[in-house]
Design a protein around this nucleic acid. Structure first.
Lengths: 342, 342
DNA sequence: TTGAAAGCGCTAACAT
DNA sequence: ATGTTAGCGCTTTCAA
C-alpha cells in the first residue's frame, strides 16, 4: 500500500481536491451521491488525511494538553484517565505532561503546549503560590486546584464535606474530628469549611460539641500521623468519628486506629474523600465521598472544545459529590446523648 | 508579540530562510558567526518554529505514543510519568492513551497513533491472549508485559524474585510462601520462576522445604485473600515469610496478617515487588524489589528514537531490580535449623 | 557556505 | 455545487 494523498482520491473519484476536502470536513454543500462516491474511494484506498498538513492550515490540532503535578497521586491518575476517555469521545488525543509540582517546569510545559497548537489545556496547577500564564488565545481550564483568575471545574468540595459530616452526625456521632488538608490548598480549605459548616450547626446536647481538626498533607503517612494524634486522648474525649480530607489520609488513619487496637467501625468511624479506586479495595472498604471524576473531566473537555459554555472566571463549575457508604463507618457504640441523659 | 515566522527571523538577521532552517536543525555547514547572529535574533524575537509545518516536511513529529491498559494501576502510572520525563529529556512530547485492557480499543489507539505519525510507540499490551499489529515502519516497543514477536524492555523479573527469596532465605526463613501473579501473565510467571529457582536449591535441613504458592490477581484485595489463605494453617506449618508478586498484593497480605493478629515482621516477613511509591509510605514500610522504572522508561524512549539499539525480538532488554530492605521483614523468631538441631 | 525556489498535503477563498 | 488556486511555515534540493 503506497502513499495516498488527497489528489489520488480526487483523481480516482473524478472530482477536484477541494471537493474531497469538503467531504472530509463534513461541509454541507456536497451532493449526496458525490459524497458517497468520494467516501467509497477513501475507504477503498485506505486514505488517511495527514494530520500535520491539516493542522497547519486549519489551526485545529485535535489535541488536548493536560498538565498535572504528579501522576503518582492516584487521584490525578484517575483524572488523566477520565480526561483521555472524554477527549477520545470527541475525537481528540491527549498530550500528557507532568509538572512535578514545580512552577518553572509548569511554565515550560505550558509553552510547549502552546507551540503544539493544542486545542485546549487542562491543568492542575502546582501548589506553589503563583498564577499561571495561559498562552493567550488558547482555552485553558483548571481542575481541582482552582485559580482565581482562570476558569475552572471541580468537585463541590465544601458540599461534599458537608454530606460526609452530616452523615456521621445523623449516625449519632458528636465527637467528630477532621483531618484537614494542607493549609493553602483550595480543595483542602473548602473541605474543612464544609466540616465546620455542619459542626457549628449541630444541636448542642449536654456534651459540648466542638470542632476538632488538624492539618496534614494529603498522603497516607500524614493521615496516619494525624489519626494517631487525634486518637491519642482520653477515651471519653476521643473522637468517635473522623472525617479525612482525602482517601489516602483516611487509609492512613485506619492504620493508626488499628495500631491502637481500635476496631473499625465499632470503635471509630472513618470517612474519606475522593473515591479513588483503592478506597473500595481495602479492608475494611472505606466509606468515602466520591468525586464525579468522569463528569468533571467531561465538563472540562467539552468546555475547551466549545461544546459547552466555559465556566466564568471566578465562578467555577462545581460538581456534586456522592456518599459511598461502605464498611468503615457505623453508629457509635454508645449514644453520647443517652450517656449524657443518664 | 505578534506572530513570528522563519521569514521574519531571516530578514532580521539578514540571511535566507534556508540558513535559518539550517541553524534550527543544527546543520553543520553554517558559519559560526552567522549561526550566532541567527540564534540571537531567534531569542530576541522569541521565535518558535511551528511543529506542524516542521513535521509535514521532515516526517518527524517529536511525539511518542504510549498505550497502557489502566492508569489506575500505580505501577503503570509511574511508568507513564517516567516515560514522559525521558521523552522530555529528548525534546519529545507524549500522547497518552488508555486501552482499558481491551484488545479492540488497543488496536484502535495504535491506528490513531500511526495516523499522528508519532516517532515511536511504547505499549503495555492488554492481557487478552493476542498479539499486536504494529503499524509497520513505526518503531514500537513493549514494556513490562513482553510479547514474543516484538522488541521489549522490562525488569529482570525472575532475577528480582530470586533476590527477594534469597534475602528471606539468608535471613533464616525456610517456610517461604509465594503469592504468585495471575496465570498467563508473563511478569507473573517470571517472578514465580525466580521464587522456585531459589526454593529448589535451598539446602534441605531436617524440616522439609517445599515451595508453596497460590495464584492471585495483582491487586490489593486478591493479595489479602491469598495471604489469608496461606496463613490459615497450623502454626508450625504456617509460612514465616511471604514473597508477593506485586506491592499491592503484599500490602493486602500485610492486612491479612494483621487481621489474624500476626505481628509484622516478628511473626511474618513480607516482601513485595515493584517498588511503587505507596510501598514506602505505609506502616510498616514494605520491603520490596524495586524496578528501575526510570531506567526502563529511558531505555524504551532511547531505543525508539534510535539513540540506542532496539532490543532484538525475542531477546528483551532486562533491567536489574534492587532490594529495598524496609520494615516488613526480619529474621524469623525461631531459627528453624536450631529447632531441628535440638 | 549560502541563497533561491520547489514543494510537503491540505484548507479556504474565489471563481464558475 | 464544484473546480481552481494560493498559500500555511517549514525543509531541502539545486545552484551559485
Amino acid at each position: 500500500m503506497t502513499k495516498r494523498g488527497i489528489k489520488d482520491v480526487a483523481q480516482r473519484a473524478g472530482v477536484a481536491v477541494g471537493t474531497v476536502s469538503r467531504v472530509l470536513n463534513e461541509h454541507p454543500s456536497v451532493n449526496a451521491d458525490v459524497r458517497a462516491r468520494v467516501k467509497a474511494v477513501i475507504a477503498e484506498l485506505g486514505y488517511r488525511p495527514d494530520p500535520f498538513a491539516r493542522s497547519m492550515r486549519s489551526k485545529v490540532s485535535r489535541l488536548i494538553g493536560i498538565v498535572i503535578p504528579d501522576l503518582t497521586n492516584p487521584f490525578f491518575a484517575e483524572l488523566v484517565q477520565c480526561a483521555e476517555r472524554a477527549a477520545a469521545d470527541h475525537s481528540h488525543n491527549v498530550i500528557f505532561m507532568s509538572s512535578f509540582d514545580d512552577a518553572v517546569k509548569e511554565a515550560d510545559r505550558l509553552a510547549q503546549l502552546a507551540g503544539r497548537k493544542v486545542d485546549g489545556i487542562i491543568i492542575v496547577p502546582c501548589n506553589s503560590p503563583h498564577s499561571i500564564k495561559a498562552p493567550k488565545g488558547l482555552p485553558l481550564i483548571t481542575v481541582d486546584r482552582l485559580l482565581a483568575d482562570h476558569p475552572g471545574v471541580a468537585a463541590d468540595n465544601r458540599g461534599g464535606a458537608r454530606i460526609a459530616v452530616d452523615y456521621l452526625a445523623k449516625l449519632g456521632h458528636r465527637r467528630i474530628a477532621c483531618i484537614a488538608g494542607p493549609a493553602g490548598s483550595r480543595p483542602a480549605e473548602d473541605r474543612l469549611q464544609g466540616y465546620l459548616d455542619v459542626m457549628t450547626t449541630l444541636p448542642q446536647g449536654r456534651a459540648k460539641i466542638e470542632p476538632l481538626f488538624v492539618n496534614a498533607a494529603f498522603d497516607y503517612e500524614s493521615g496516619r500521623a494525624a489519626g494517631a494524634f487525634l486518637l491519642a486522648r482520653p477515651r471519653d474525649e476521643r473522637p468517635t468519628a473522623i472525617f479525612a480530607s482525602s482517601d489516602q489520609q483516611a487509609i492512613g488513619c485506619l492504620r493508626a486506629a488499628n495500631d491502637l487496637g481500635i476496631p473499625i467501625p465499632a470503635g471509630l468511624s472513618v470517612v474519606g474523600f475522593d473515591g479513588i479506586p483503592l478506597s473500595n479495595l481495602i479492608t475494611p472498604r472505606l466509606t468515602t465521598i466520591v468525586q464525579p471524576m468522569a463528569q468533571i473531566a467531561e465538563a472540562a473537555i467539552s468546555s475547551l472544545l466549545g461544546r459547552r459554555d466555559m465556566p466564568e472566571v471566578g465562578k467555577p463549575d462545581l460538581f456534586q459529590c456522592e456518599l459511598a457508604i461502605r464498611e468503615s463507618s457505623a453508629a457509635p457504640l454508645l449514644e453520647p446523648t443517652a450517656v449524657a441523659a443518664r
